[in-house]
Simulated assay, not measured.
Amino acid sequence: MHELGILMGAINTVENFARKNGVTKIQTLVLQIGELSSMIPKYIEECYPAAVEGTLLQETELKIEILPGNAICQNCNNVFNLIENKDICPNCGKQDWEILCGKEFMIKEIVAC
């Protein structure tokens, strides 16, 4: 489960940001995770309490937003969700596409008290 290591890196980033900006308490941390990323939201949620224990984020609420795994068809320029359409353009039936989004893992928002 690589999620714990990556999550701890994100927590360090948030703590450093908070210290540099004089933030002493954080209410909510919002993460964005793409459908096509190697991160599994369920695992992030499960390991979050252990990852934040003893940190500035210990009592912070975690919110996760899932970003769609969209692609653009190189044949007909249709934008579609890869997962919902099983990697096939629903417009022309081709599998010649380029990923537009969905591989992200980002800190979207830090809500301070």
Rank of each mutant, 00 (worst) to 15 (best):
E35A: 09
E53V: 04
Y48R: 07
E15R: 01
Y48C: 07
G5I: 02
Q58S: 10
C73E: 11
A71T: 02
I88Q: 12
K42Y: 13
G102M: 01
R19E: 12
L29Y: 06
Q74K: 15
E53M: 14
V30E: 09
Q95I: 14
M39H: 11
G22Q: 04
I66S: 03
I64G: 06
I11H: 02
M39G: 07
T28V: 12
L67K: 01
I83V: 12
M39C: 11
L56N: 05
C73L: 10
T13G: 05
M39Y: 09
N70C: 12
E35T: 04
H2W: 07
T28L: 11
T55R: 07
E3K: 00
Q27Y: 09
T24I: 13
E59G: 06
L31V: 03
K103C: 12
E53S: 13
V14W: 01
N91S: 14
A71K: 03
K25Y: 08
Q58K: 08
A71W: 01
E61P: 07
P49I: 06
E53I: 07
E61A: 13
E46L: 14
M8E: 14
N81L: 00
G22Y: 01
L29A: 07
N12E: 13
V30M: 08
G93E: 08
G93Q: 10
T24V: 13
I66M: 04
K86C: 06
N77Q: 14
E53H: 14
L62V: 03
V52E: 10
C92A: 04
T60E: 10
L57Y: 01
